[in-house]
Design a protein around this nucleic acid. Sequence first.
DNA 1: CTGAAATATGACACTTTTGACCTATGGCAA
DNA 2: TTGCCATAGGTCAAAAGTGTCATATTTCAG
Lengths: 204, 204
Amino acid sequence: MLVYAILELLQHKPLSGYELKKRFSGSIVFFWHARHSQVYPELKRMEKQGLIAGTRVEQETRPAKRVYAITADGERALKAWLKRPVALQAVKDQMMLKTFAFHLIEPQEAAAQLRHHQRLHQRRLDLYLATRQELEQRCGEIDATGDPIAFWNAVTLGYSIELERSYIAWCNWALERQRRFNARAVEANANGAPAGGPTEGAVG
Amino acid sequence: MLVYAILELLQHKPLSGYELKKRFSGSIVFFWHARHSQVYPELKRMEKQGLIAGTRVEQETRPAKRVYAITADGERALKAWLKRPVALQAVKDQMMLKTFAFHLIEPQEAAAQLRHHQRLHQRRLDLYLATRQELEQRCGEIDATGDPIAFWNAVTLGYSIELERSYIAWCNWALERQRRFNARAVEANANGAPAGGPTEGAVG
DNA sequence: CTGAAATATGACACTTTTGACCTATGGCAA
DNA sequence: TTGCCATAGGTCAAAAGTGTCATATTTCAG
């Protein structure tokens, strides 16, 4: 997969390993990322396969760098991949893994975790919104410019924003539901009817 | 991370490697998954660490199995992990990686990809909704039962459902935006004003 | 009675990813 | 002038994860 992420970035413009690494902390990082210790070996492998071509570039004030450009073969491989249908991706979410077992910790601790997580996603959302503002200022009303690169950039950014909003909304919803749940439990306890214990049937 | 996923599952009830593997195709698979070739070695490692304890169990109609139970150490480790604040997780989304480069393929091919992906997520959403129905039938109105396991199960399931709905909504939105975008491009073309070419500034 | 399917566990090669460490150069600030 | 930061590019061990093959047993359908 990293192969295609790199090809996509090089398809716009030739870049060095260091510049690529920085791109993976730029807009593409919203849905794909890689460390430099993964990028450099991958570039070598891709060059051996003929997907990209590197050239040494001397610089005056900075160390020399090796700039990679996509080849005709690389572009073919990229387009072929784009046309292949994607399979449904498995979800891996640490926060959900924790939430699934929140019955093991104190309700207020669970709530604190949810609030903390909400703050983190709020910060990320703010970053995404700022990025969108920037993009719109650079490109004007995207639909009007007719630039397909800016268009699809905006479409993926729209997804990232929606995802963060969903997460924040879910945190709110979970906290609200938890408040109601706890209130009921306290009430039931006061009436001398203890809340139900672990129910095996709930898991599977 | 797999360690904690396994501990969570064993915390409910001792299970064999095979049963665990099946759990990873059950409700926990909505946000975590693992193949059996990862589960079995992990169980051995965890037993050596003292987080779980295995016992050989003979069966009449089936081959003997090794059932693992969580230890006091394992429970402590699990609870400690639950209380540690989660870091923001990086997103990895193949579909977004593709969408980011859809300017390289024909608009109708991009639209076909979006529609295909929407169908896949619709199917998954249907599965999740069925699971929720099942859960509610087994546990009744969850807030009323006072069972915290069923409660947090419902909360995570709520997230999974929201995520799928977001994805489907995004596909619709993207398709609609693309239709408008293409209509404009055709219009501009008819007026003798060709649509803008690649804009370097759109990526970074 | 043969073969497929489910149960049950494992080995192994491989890729992907992470985290820590290392080497340079040059600019800039305390 | 000492040290930090950014640029530039690596290495390496380890962990995480995938995919395939192997090996038993038993049940059940044809």
